[in-house]
């Protein structure tokens, strides 16, 4: 898989072939087919999914020591958008390749969503225990909402510069947590 990623970084997704990856990894084509009996399509799908999982694990690790959900979301958005901006794979993607990548990722999407949701539900439970949530918040539903927002913003920031800490904090306080977390200053 690492060899596959290096090949994609160099030549783009469309140029990816089993031969290249075998050469890069220093193994035979037969070996590659043993790992990926479905051939190139399976290799692309599994490699892409693996990369996505690695991306989210990296975010979770980076925010693990931060004290509040707000801090974690802000840092996660910042770091996530930096990683995506820097990613040579994403930057070099042409239209047809983007189509292929999205198709490859699609089967894993509900699972990714679920894993992030469960993670956020735990964080929300901590916030609730600390008395920081508004009354009547359903943890599972709120976690689902936050998951959608997180995925949506990392994919399509639509004008927000998430590498800017002030903007991101404002965004998180408002669109992410505005209805979930109690206002820190009581409304007049």
């Amino acid at each position: 898989m690492r060899a596959g990623i290096r090949c994609v970084e160099r030549k783009g997704l469309q140029g990816l072939s089993i031969e290249d990856v075998a050469q890069e990894a220093g193994v035979s084509r037969t070996t590659i087919y043993r790992y990926f009996p479905g051939g190139r399509a399976q290799m692309v799908e599994e490699t892409a999914t693996w990369e996505v999982a690695r991306f989210w694990r990296r975010l979770a690790r980076a925010v693990a020591d931060l004290p509040t959900l707000e801090e974690r979301l802000v840092r996660g958005l910042e770091l996530g958008s930096q990683i995506i901006k820097r990613s040579t794979i994403m930057a070099n993607l042409m239209d047809p390749e983007l189509n292929e990548l999205v198709s490859a990722l699609q089967p894993a999407e509900p699972i990714v969503h679920q894993v992030i949701r469960d993670y956020l539900a735990e964080l929300l439970a901590d916030e609730a225990a600390a008395g920081r949530l508004r009354d009547g918040i359903d943890l599972r539903q709120a976690a689902d909402y936050l998951t959608r927002m997180m995925i949506s913003f990392l994919g399509s920031p639509a004008g927000w510069d998430l590498t800017d800490a002030d903007q991101t904090r404002r965004l998180v306080r408002r669109e992410f947590l505005g209805g979930i977390v109690r206002p820190t200053v009581a409304p007049a």
Binding site: R169, R174, E175, P183, T184, A188
Partner: peptide, 30 residues
């Protein structure tokens, strides 16, 4: 009601400094 309105209604209280991409003229106290 759960996610949008509270954020719009309380935003002054939540975030008095109000940093945003393109600064707005923000008038009323709350």
């Amino acid at each position: 009601r759960t996610y949008l309105l509270p954020a719009l209604i309380d935003q002054q209280a939540i975030n008095p400094t109000h940093p945003r991409p393109d600064p707005v003229v923000n008038d009323g106290p709350t």
